[in-house]
Structure formats: structure tokens, C-alpha cells
Amino acid sequence: MSEKKDIPEDMFLAPENRKHTVTGPDGEVIHVDPLNDYFCQDLPKVEAPYKGVLEKFLNWARAESLWVLAYGTGCGSIELPPLFSPRFDAYRFGVMMRPTPRQSGVLIISGYLAVKTLKRAIRSYEQMQNPKYVIALGSCTINGGMYFDSYNTINRLDHYLPVDVYIAGCMPRPEAILAGFNKLKERIKSGNAEGANHYAENLEWYKANQKKIIKDWNMPTYNW
């Protein structure tokens, strides 16, 4: 159990993602390396913001139209559906749930994050497009919360993803989450919410941290 065996490089890859050969209909042999052939290997670039009034206007639009990825990681995800109920009604702040990371700009890490879930959260985060923001709910994402000594739950989210707003509590009520959205709006409008660019700049540090705990890294370095 505890002793390490010789691990082949593609041990953790899903069978369809390992290097393999395919024979074409007229007998030619095609070598397929799915990680290189099917995925984009480029790394993210820093997309410089515009200057002056234009960027202020765009930031206002971004702040007033927060599309949240409907993805829950922990117990906090049960606090999100009430946000869209008549009582709290986050729609009036321009907040909307989107089912696909491509169209959403805000990733809410709702509560404790197991290593297994972190991998999915990273993939979702990286599939979102450049102005993107992370809201971390609950004390688990701040310092581990009640899972601070767990073998499988991360302690500090900001070592793996650039966090814009932390919302403390265990769990924060929907009112607190609404306040967090407003805080995020202020941050975007002031032009400080450049998490995506920060992530692209410090990609090596983030990737080192991520790969330290995700030992079965079976995806491209950056999941476009």
C-alpha cells in the first residue's frame, strides 16, 4: 500500500485518452495522442484591459450582468437555489445561472472542496472566458473550516484559484451571498477584479500547487 510502485506515465489516463494507434480503412496506421491531438495545449495569455472610460463602461456592464455557473461543490450549494426564489430574487441584481462554463463569468465555490472536486472546479474555471470571477462561500474555503485536518479537503482556496470575494459563514445565508455579489460588483467596477489575468500571470505557481495534490493529473495543463 504505502510503498510507491513504478508508475507508468499514462497510468491515470482514461483508456480513451492514452496514446494508441488506429488502422485506417485502407490499411494506414495512424498514431493518436489524444492529449495533444484533441486538446489545445496553449497556455492562457494576459488580456490587457482597455483604458479609460470604455473599460469603466464595460466593467459596469460586466458587474451588472453576473452569469453564475450552476455548479455546487459542497453543502453551500443548497444555499444557492433560494437565491432565485421570490424571497431573495437575485435576478434583480443581474445575477443569473448558466448551465455551461462557456457562458458564465462567475464561479461559486460553495463550501468544502475535496481534491476530487477541486479537479473538476479547476476544469470548469479554465473553461470560462477571460473576465471571470471566483466567489468562495463559507469558512471551508478560507481556512478549511471544520475540515481543516481532513486528508482530502483543501484548506485555502486562494492557493489553487484566484479568489475575488470570500463570504464567511458556515454556511452563509442567502442574504450574505447577496451581499457578496454586491461586493463583487464594487470590485469589478473599481477595476480590481482581474483574477483571470492574475491566474495567467502566475500560472506556474497555481499549477504547482494544483499538481501537488491532484496526483492523477490526466488532463492538459490548461483546459481550454
Binding site: E47, A61, R62, E64, G94, G105
Partner: peptide, 19 residues
Amino acid sequence: GIKVYQPYINLVKNFSIRS
């Protein structure tokens, strides 16, 4: 509910996505 001009904001936001 949303602001009446929310569709405009969404449109501007979508056209301002950088990557």
C-alpha cells in the same frame, strides 16, 4: 425581476468578453 434594460447589459457584457 430583472431591470427592463437588462438585455442591453447582457448584450454589452457578451460583446466585451476578452478571450
